[in-house]
Amino acid sequence: KCNTATCATQRLANFLVHSSNNFGAILSSTNVGSNTY
């Protein structure tokens, strides 16, 4: 594990990016499902 501020910031940034991608995918699939019905 790294405990430097830079490494922690990069890890946090990566986490936010992945979370945003997952959130966007969920919204996209939900919109497609609602449009189908």
Rank of each mutant, 00 (worst) to 15 (best):
K1T: 13
K1C: 15
C2Y: 03
C2A: 01
C2S: 00
C2P: 00
C2G: 01
C2R: 00
C2M: 00
N3S: 09
N3P: 07
N3L: 05
N3W: 02
N3I: 02
N3G: 08
T4Y: 10
T4P: 15
T4C: 15
T4G: 14
A5Y: 07
A5T: 10
A5R: 09
A5M: 09
A5D: 13
A5C: 15
T6V: 07
T6D: 13
T6E: 13
T6L: 08
T6C: 15
T6R: 06
C7L: 00
C7M: 02
A8M: 06
A8I: 06
A8C: 15
A8V: 06
T9K: 04
T9I: 04
Q10C: 08
Q10R: 06
Q10M: 13
Q10Y: 13
R11L: 12
R11H: 08
R11W: 00
R11D: 02
L12P: 15
L12A: 14
L12Q: 14
L12H: 13
A13V: 08
A13H: 06
N14A: 05
N14C: 06
N14S: 05
N14Y: 06
N14P: 15
N14K: 00
N14M: 06
F15T: 10
F15Q: 05
L16T: 14
L16P: 00
V17G: 01
V17W: 05
V17I: 13
V17T: 01
V17M: 07
V17L: 06
H18L: 14
H18G: 07
H18S: 09
S19D: 04
S19C: 10
S20T: 13
S20D: 07
S20K: 03
N21C: 04
N21P: 07
N21R: 02
N21L: 02
N22K: 01
N22L: 01
N22H: 03
N22S: 03
N22I: 05
F23Y: 14
F23N: 07
F23S: 06
F23L: 03
F23E: 06
G24W: 01
G24F: 00
G24Y: 01
G24E: 00
A25V: 15
A25Y: 12
A25G: 06
A25M: 14
I26W: 03
I26N: 03
I26P: 04
I26L: 01
L27Q: 09
L27G: 05
L27K: 05
S28E: 05
S28K: 06
S28L: 06
S29A: 07
T30K: 04
T30P: 00
T30N: 13
N31I: 04
N31E: 02
N31L: 01
N31V: 04
V32L: 07
V32W: 04
G33T: 14
G33F: 04
G33D: 09
S34D: 08
S34W: 08
S34N: 09
S34P: 11
S34I: 02
S34C: 08
N35F: 04
N35Q: 12
N35H: 11
T36V: 09
T36A: 11
T36M: 12
T36G: 12
T36E: 09
Y37F: 09
Y37C: 10
Y37R: 10
